[in-house]
Write a protein that binds this DNA or RNA. Structure first.
Length: 206
DNA sequence: CAGTCGATGTACT
DNA sequence: GTACATCGACTGG
């Protein structure tokens, strides 16, 4: 009898196709709700279901890093959709975005909160302090801390091996809330934040 | 509960 | 110099 390698606990899912990202950013943002973000580090996998996102775009959006054109910091936003844009802010935090649309268009979707699925122990350890379960990944910088996302992942593709974005159960329209974005001053009126309504895992309530 | 505020690095004016 | 797609500690009611 030939020894078979251990099978994964769950069937290996295909990552979202490149075409997923090459569509209008607001649509991608909406459809990212329910998708599963996964991070593989040292052969271990952490994942979470996306429950809160915000869209940012070069056109008509003064709050977007890409609004004033391509710079060294935001260069990844202008790449072809399907990779991660990571930036450093407030002197101590990282935030991660899913880059969208065709090359040359500066657009991305900020991941603001996920519902933890796999690797919760690892995530809790990386958060660095004891936190109640709902506070593990309910904020953009908390997500980066939990998933060990930093500058080294800026521009890395979302089709593996380090980062994966996988299809999840679709979130019905009735479960989606659309609101203005959090923590910005200019362009504050745009309703470009998408949240899974009533999720216990989002960063802020209505 | 809500509101305020300091920490801390860096991109951009 | 200034603003910043934040967080967590602290205040006061």
């Amino acid at each position: 009898m030939i020894a078979t390698p251990p099978l994964p606990a769950m069937p290996r899912q295909r990552p979202l196709p490149a075409s997923f990202y090459l569509r209008p950013t607001l649509l991608v943002a909406r459809e990212l709700l329910g998708a599963v973000f996964a991070r593989v580090l040292d052969g271990r996998r952490c994942s979470g279901r996306i429950v809160e996102v915000e869209a940012y775009h070069q056109d008509g959006d003064p709050a977007s890093h890409s609004f004033r054109g391509c710079t060294q910091r935001n260069e990844v936003m202008f790449r072809r959709g399907g990779c991660l844009y990571v930036y450093f802010t407030y002197g101590m935090h990282f935030c991660m975005n899913v880059v969208t649309e065709a090359a040359g268009i500066g657009a991305a979707v900020l991941i603001r909160a996920v519902e933890p699925l796999e690797g919760i122990e690892d995530m809790a350890r990386r958060r660095g302090r004891p936190v109640p379960p709902h506070a593990l990944t309910n904020g953009p910088a908390k997500c980066c801390q939990a998933f060990a996302v930093d500058r080294s992942l800026n521009g890395v593709p979302l089709r593996g091996p380090e980062l994966l974005l996988l299809p999840g159960d679709p979130v019905p329209e009735s479960s989606v809330a659309v609101t203005p974005r959090v923590g910005i001053s200019s362009g504050a009126g745009l309703p470009w934040r998408f949240v899974v309504r009533d999720s216990a895992w989002v960063s802020k309530k209505r």
